[in-house]
């Protein structure tokens, strides 16, 4: 079972929920992988402290021009949807930072002058903390292409067992790449107008992908029921509440997972998993595909 933890807004407690869920399940003898898909700013390792045992570079293929065979016809430049090549007199200039790796330039070059060479976009790192498997993608700083790296990280998902995926914030391509194919999407939010607004976007995103979803309210406060009201209207279950507490904020600050800062949370997260399991078994009745 793959559970993706996402949130429209950043900083709502996605990583807190994802790491604690993974740790709580692992302590219950489940076969668990924590997969950090927030490749721009992966933070899960701060809480999980894994031993990284394997680092794999991830590449896309970008063009390299053989100037001895090139006829400078300009076909590659005309066809490139990303304007990553250009013909200037008797040279072809490539802009690897614009390239999406579609390979069109090589396929269409009438002179066979385009060769594809790998360009590193990041790494996928695997390791473990005790029995918990740990995988993360790390985007190379200055690179604009997160989705292919996320796809590469997701290849490490084991067919059996439980994978908890920590998704990046937002609702655009990197999030889609993370959530797509998950059995369940857990949306973490906070009871503020900002949190509500972005939760709504995230719910639309999950529904767009046809992934059933449920909500975790972080920094919950007495008398602030805006998220609950919304969830009622949307027929979405609130599966867990974590109160606003300076103590929890401090533990987070120091990289202590919630389930370690306060052991009583173990049960809450196991309960959360069971609720998710029931929803997935019930074919995600709460969240219909449009």
């Amino acid at each position: 079972m793959n559970i993706c933890v996402a949130s429209g807004k950043g900083g709502t407690g996605k990583t807190t929920v994802a790491t604690s869920l993974a740790l709580a399940l692992q302590s219950e003898q489940h076969d668990v992988t924590f997969l950090d898909c927030d490749v721009e700013e992966p933070n899960g390792h701060i809480f999980i402290n894994p031993d990284i045992r394997e680092i794999e570079n991830v590449f896309i293929e970008v063009p390299e021009i053989d100037h001895t065979t090139c006829t400078f016809c300009g076909k590659c430049a005309d066809l490139c949807a990303f304007n990553a090549l250009l013909v200037a007199g008797d040279s072809v200039i490539t802009f690897p930072e614009l390239c999406h790796g579609c390979g069109g330039c090589r396929y269409f070059c009438p002179a066979g002058a385009v060769r594809l060479t790998p360009k590193k976009i990041g790494t996928v790192e695997t390791g473990a903390a005790g029995q918990l498997r740990f995988v993360r993608g790390r985007l190379e700083v200055g690179t604009a292409l997160s989705p292919p790296l996320i796809e590469a990280a997701k290849k490490k998902i084991m067919p059996r067992g439980i994978t908890v995926i920590d998704a990046p914030p937002g609702t655009s391509c990197p999030v889609i790449a993370s959530v797509r194919g998950s059995d369940f999407c857990l949306l973490v939010t906070e009871p503020t107008l900002l949190g509500l607004h972005d939760l709504d976007l995230a719910v639309q995103m999950a529904r767009h992908l046809g992934v059933p979803c449920g909500v975790v309210v972080n920094r919950a406060q007495e008398g602030w029921g805006i998220i609950h009201d919304y969830c009622r209207r949307q027929d979405l279950p609130v599966l867990l509440e974590i109160p606003l507490s300076k103590k929890i904020a401090r533990a987070y600050a120091r990289g202590v997972p919630l389930v370690r800062a306060d052991k009583t949370w173990h049960d809450a997260f196991r309960q959360l998993y069971r609720a998710i399991g029931e929803m997935v078994a019930g074919e995600g009745t709460y969240c219909h595909q449009r």
Binding site: E41, N43, I46, V141, Y252, A253, R254, G255
Partner: peptide, 17 residues
């Protein structure tokens, strides 16, 4: 930035950028 290890970690990447 906020004084959390996560934010500190991300700060390093942002400053590189």
């Amino acid at each position: 930035v906020e004084p959390t290890l996560s934010s500190l970690h991300d700060l390093g990447r942002v400053l590189q950028l």
